[in-house]
Amino acid sequence: MDLVLQLLFTGIGIGAVYALVALGFVLIFRATNVVNFAQGEFSMVAAYLMVVFAVDLGWPYWLSFLLALAGMALLGVIFNLGVYYPLRHRTFLPVIIATIGASILMANSVLAIYGPQPQVLQGWFETPGIQLGPVYLDSQYLLIIAVTVVMVIFNYWFFEHTMLGKKLQATSQDKEMASLLGISVSTMIMITFIYSAVLGGLAGILVAPVLFVSIQMGSTIALKAFAATIIGGFGDVAGAIIGGLALGVIETFGAAYISVPYKDGFAFLVLVLFLIFRPQGIFGERVAEKA
């Protein structure tokens, strides 16, 4: 039982990271009908910004955190204007390819500026974790889980109970109708990119103390988050969260009870099974609507 609890905690912790990044995938997909393959690089860039502010410049952690998120908001604006906006009237394919190109550009820009050395970023708390009975709770994973819960609640409140959230929803559901109702579609899409970049960045900053800060960290997380998005149902916020958490738990238990080397295989096996038997994912109605 101790083993199960320990694995469950770790699985949920890892899954929460996938969920945060998956949320960014979903929001952009809903707003633009495009998969943003640079979502993982948002995480990586934010983690490096934290290293610059908190480690290199030695600024307080909270200030570095806020500045890194502000930097991500700016990156969201640049990304929207530079990658999505010029191609907004084209089919989805050129935009997807542009996001892949942007992800390569971001990774190599960071490589050129900061070098290939993996960096260490301390966690938010001095204490690395707490022992709760037989289970060790890593403080960073606790923080990740807490932030994910807060973000889920915030998302619900924002999209269901604020005018801006409703405008964003309206834009994602029918751009022409939203435009006829006086909603500035391009502004809404800009806000979506900003929000997604900040979400991706948040995931990167949270996971950096656990996985270290490296050029590859974004792509590793994004691949799993993408799988989580499909499992949850592409286009569904709740699906992204459930998919991410499920993936984290499945791969952790799969590694513990079946095979460690094939840990990644379990995540993608689940993905393949979903694609065969339930391609719309767990909460997949919206995908059917869009198709």
Binding site: Q6, V210, K263
Partner: peptide
């Protein structure tokens, strides 16, 4: 005798084993 795949993000199952 435990193998693991490169670029693993979590080693909890290995440590517990």
């Amino acid at each position: 005798d435990q193998g693991y795949a490169n670029q693993s993000q979590d080693f909890t199952p290995v440590v517990l084993a």
